[in-house]
Every structure is written in structure tokens, then in C-alpha cells.
């Protein structure tokens, strides 16, 4: 049975140790966190006025990079599959509005907090202090930005995770008989996982990241590196649009949905061929 152990958890970071899980499955979750989980992001920008130094394309790209709160939006808005085409149905898009102008001697920096939600106050920039545009004197920008749900696979702006990493859990063994206590491995270990205690090389495997510096430097080949089977560390860092644990859950959920879908279509095919047995 899969076991999960939380090693770190806060608003943006979630570190887990997954037990009794095959690599393929663990990696599927890691990837799903990046590419499958739905979030809100700005996808369409209408410019009413722009006399800033930046062109429309640059501004649109900049606002698209702003993470939007998506925890409630995921369940509220339609999924991207339903929103294709030139005439998407109701419940796909939600708009934000930006308007700013400077006087003759004025300069102004527009931040993400200046993107005002129009109809849904829940879809707002997660961080308000992301600088978007700098206005010089007598410049003006008015735009309407439309956000929708999407997946990281389509464009990375929809990816809720900035970091999603699956690593092995190392198992370092020092063969004491071979060790000549030259201590080169101690010097070379960047994570300070190796130390000398009572004239013996001691390794703290939790600090090791399998960089293999010690192995390459050990002349008597006294260090053996290995890792545990079916045990992995998973680290997810959130962009802020979703809580990291939500990302993890959604990732699993997305895999489940996909599998269910697969199961359904498999059944369809099977019933079609076999004639309903």
C-alpha cells in the first residue's frame, strides 16, 4: 500500500516521501503537477489604449505570467476542452480590467494589484506587487484581460507548480575494510553528508543527493552508492495559484480521471468487438 510521509509543508512548499510506489507512477504525479492540473491564467487581452513604451504583445505576455488565485475557480469554470473555438460558451472566461494614466511630469509603475477583477472577485492576482508596466509622463494604458482555465501542457503560464521534483532516497555504504581514511570524500562532499567519527567514515544519507563526488574521488573504491527501491521524495513548489497540497491532490485526481476515461473507452471498444460479454 502506498504510504505518504510529509517532511515539509507550508504555503508554497510541500515535501513528501512516497513509499511503496513504482517510479513510473511517482513520476506521473510529478509531471501531472506541472502539466495536468487546471489553473486560471490570462489568455486574451483587449487593448483599448496603449501609449506606453511597451508594445501590446509584451504587456499581454507580462500579465499572462501573473499567477491568479485558482482554488475556487477550478470547480467554478468550464474546462479548456469545452472552451475551444471562436465562440466559447458562458462560464469559460472571466475578465480583469486595467486602466492607468500619467500626467505631464509623472511616472508610474503598474503592479499586478492594479489588475481589477470585473465579475469574479475570487479570480485575482495572487501577489499584488509584481511590476507590470512602467509609465513615463503622459502615457496611458487601458486594457481588459480575459482569464480561463488551462493546463501547463498548453502553456506554462497555467502550470501551478514552479518546481516539481522527484528524487531518489540514497543509500550510501562505506566499505570500512577498503577505506584508507584519506578523507578526500569528506572534503569533496558538497552537502557535508560525510564526516569522520572515531576514525571511521560516517555518511548521513538524508543529506546525500547522489552527486557521486565521493565515489569519483575514492581511490580504494570504498564507497558504494545505492538508492532505496520504490521510495521517493517528491517536492512541489507552488506558483501561488493553488496550495501545494492541492496541486498534489489535483495531480492525482487528473491521473485518476484520465485512467477512468481510458477505462471507459477501453470498455467501449471491448464491448464493440466482443459483442457485449
Amino acid at each position: 500500500m502506498v504510504g505518504i510521509e510529509i517532511t515539509e509543508k507550508n504555503d508554497t512548499v510541500l515535501a513528501l516521501v512516497l513509499r511503496d510506489i513504482p517510479l513510473e507512477f511517482a513520476n506521473a504525479i510529478r509531471r501531472a503537477a506541472l502539466e495536468e492540473v487546471l489553473t486560471m491564467a490570462i489568455d486574451y487581452v483587449v487593448f483599448y489604449d496603449n501609449t506606453t513604451a511597451l508594445s501590446d504583445e509584451i504587456i499581454a505576455h507580462r500579465i499572462a505570467m501573473v499567477p491568479l488565485r485558482s482554488d475556487l475557480a477550478i470547480d467554478k469554470y468550464r474546462r479548456p476542452e469545452e472552451c475551444r473555438g471562436s465562440n466559447p460558451p458562458e462560464g469559460c472566461y472571466v475578465s480583469l480590467y486595467l486602466e492607468a494614466e500619467t500626467g505631464p511630469q509623472e511616472e508610474l509603475v503598474i503592479y499586478s494589484k492594479d489588475l481589477k477583477p470585473q465579475e469574479d472577485p475570487e479570480v485575482v492576482p495572487v501577489y499584488g506587487d509584481i511590476p507590470l508596466i512602467k509609465l513615463g509622463p503622459q502615457q496611458r494604458v487601458v486594457l481588459e484581460a480575459w482569464a480561463r482555465l488551462g493546463r501547463g501542457r498548453e502553456h506554462i503560464k497555467w502550470s501551478p507548480a514552479t518546481v516539481s521534483v522527484l528524487t531518489y532516497i540514497p543509500n550510501v555504504r562505506v566499505i570500512t575494510e577498503r577505506c584508507n581514511l584519506c578523507r578526500l570524500c569528506v572534503e569533496r562532499c558538497p552537502t557535508k553528508a560525510i564526516s569522520v567519527v572515531n576514525d571511521r567514515i560516517v555518511v548521513d544519507s538524508t543529506k546525500c543527493n547522489l552527486c557521486r563526488q565521493c565515489v569519483s574521488v575514492c581511490e580504494p573504491e570504498a564507497i558504494e552508492l545505492d538508492w532505496e527501491k520504490d521510495r521517493y521524495r517528491l517536492l512541489i513548489e507552488s506558483s501561488g495559484s493553488l496550495k501545494p497540497e492541492r496541486i498534489f491532490l489535483e495531480a492525482v485526481l487528473q491521473i485518476k480521471t484520465k485512467l477512468l476515461e481510458f477505462q471507459r473507452s477501453f470498455k467501449e471498444v471491448f464491448s464493440g468487438v466482443g459483442g457485449g460479454s
Partner: peptide, 25 residues
């Protein structure tokens, strides 16, 4: 090295497609 990285500029890496550790740093 003092900042916690191997001094030769290498790092262990995992293949994003499979999650496997690459054979060499």
C-alpha cells in the same frame, strides 16, 4: 563547493520523462 554544489560544476540529474536518475552527473 562551499555553497553546496560539487566543485567541478556537475550535478546529479533526473530524466524528466521517466524520473530516472541519469547515469552520470
Amino acid at each position: 563547493l562551499l555553497r553546496g554544489y560539487p566543485s567541478d560544476g556537475t550535478e546529479p540529474m533526473y530524466d524528466g520523462r521517466t524520473g530516472e536518475l541519469l547515469a552520470n552527473p
